[in-house]
Amino acid sequence: MEKNNSITHVILTGGVGSRLWPLSRKSQPKQYLDLFDGKSLFEMTVDRNRTLVDTVMVVGNTDNCHLSRKVLEKSGTDYVDIIESTPRNTAAAIAFAAFASDPNAILIVTPSDHIIDEMEHYAHSIKEAIEKASRGYIVTFGIVPTKPETGYGYIERKGEDVLSFREKPNKVSAKDFIEKGNFLWNSGMFCFKAGVFLEELQLYNPEVYEKSKAAWDANIGGKLDLELSLAIPSISIDYAVMERSRKIKVVSSEFIWSDLGSFESVYDYLVSKGHPVDANGNMVIGTDAYTAFVGLKNTIFVATESANLILQKESSQEVKNVYNELERKKSHLLE
C-alpha cells in the first residue's frame, strides 16, 4: 500500500433518528444521546477510528454542529468541520468531504449512529478496504448477516464483486437472501480516494457533482450557502454512484454491527449490556420510577420529560408514523 495516502475519517451526522422518538429529537438526535455505556454513539464512532486515521472530518448541519463540537473539544480532537445549511442526502454530503480533501487522500466514510463490536475484525476490514481503495476502487462494507433482517438493505456479491444492491426486503425475500448465502447487510460505510469518488460522481451524476462543487466553492469556513445547497438534488450515494460505478468492491465483514435504527435494535443492544427486563421481556428506558407491566409481553416503555411512548417491540418500525404525524402538526414535541 502507498504510505503517502493520508487517511481521513469522514463522519456523517445528518440523521434525525425519527424511529427513536421521543428519545431522539431535532435538538438532540440519537447519535448524541448518552444512552450507551455513558457515551454517545457519535463519541464511540470518533473513538473507534482514532488510531486508524490521520484526520477527522465531520459533515454535520446547522442544528447539530455544536453537539459534535462539544464531544470533539472534550477529547481534544482536531477536526475539519463541514456544516450543511440544509440536508441534501449522502451523495452531496460525501461530495463536500471529497472536495475538502486532497484527491489522493483515502476517505473512510461512516455514519455516526452505529454500534460496532469485535474491534479486531473491524480493524481487519478497514485495513482490507484501505488496500483496495489505494488501488482505485470504491469500497463498500457488507456485514455477514446473522438473521433475515427486514430493516436493512442488502448487497448481493460474488467474492469481492458486487452483483446488485437490494432495497430493504420483506420477510420472505430476507429469508431467501440468507438461504442463498451470498448476501450481506449494506452497512452504509465506504472507503475510497477522494478524487476517485468525485470522478465517478461526475460521470454518473454530473448535476450533483456540479451543484455540490458550486456550493463547496462558496463555503465560508466550512459553512455552506443555503441557496446554493437547495439547488443540489437530494439523492443517496447508493443511487448516485454505488449502483452504477464499475469500480465497486465489497469487503465482507465479520464484526458485530447494528445501525440502532429502531427500538427493537436498541432493546437487543441494551439487553446484551445487562439492562434490566422483567420476566415477560418488558423494558423501561429513560426513567428510574417503578414501572409494572401487567398482561404485557415484549413491551418497551420509553419515558422523557415531555412525551412517553409505549410500544410492542415487534412494531418498532412504526414509530416513524408517530413522528410523521407530529411533523404534520408542526408539534413542539419534535424539537
Rank of each mutant, 00 (worst) to 15 (best):
G181I: 03
A279Q: 08
K329C: 03
R19E: 06
S315M: 09
N280D: 15
V196Y: 04
K70W: 14
E128R: 05
Y239V: 13
V80G: 04
A105D: 15
L230A: 00
A218I: 06
I115D: 00
T62K: 13
D278H: 04
V16A: 08
L67E: 02
K247S: 13
K168Y: 10
V172K: 10
K127C: 07
K249T: 07
T45G: 06
A292V: 13
G188S: 02
L107P: 01
T304K: 00
R50P: 07
E73C: 13
W185H: 09
K158I: 00
L41S: 08
N170Q: 05
S245E: 06
P145S: 05
A279M: 00
K330T: 13
R48E: 09
A194E: 10
D117E: 14
E179A: 14
F96R: 07
S27N: 15
T55M: 00
V46D: 00
F177C: 11
D117A: 13
L201G: 07
N186R: 13
Y137P: 00
V251Q: 05
P87R: 01
T8A: 11
L201C: 03
L23S: 02
G15N: 15
I300V: 08
T150Q: 04
D217H: 04
Y122G: 06
S27P: 06
Q312A: 12
G153N: 11
R328N: 10
F96N: 12
Q202E: 15
I232C: 03
E318A: 14
G60F: 00
F263K: 02
S236H: 15
A194P: 07
N49S: 11
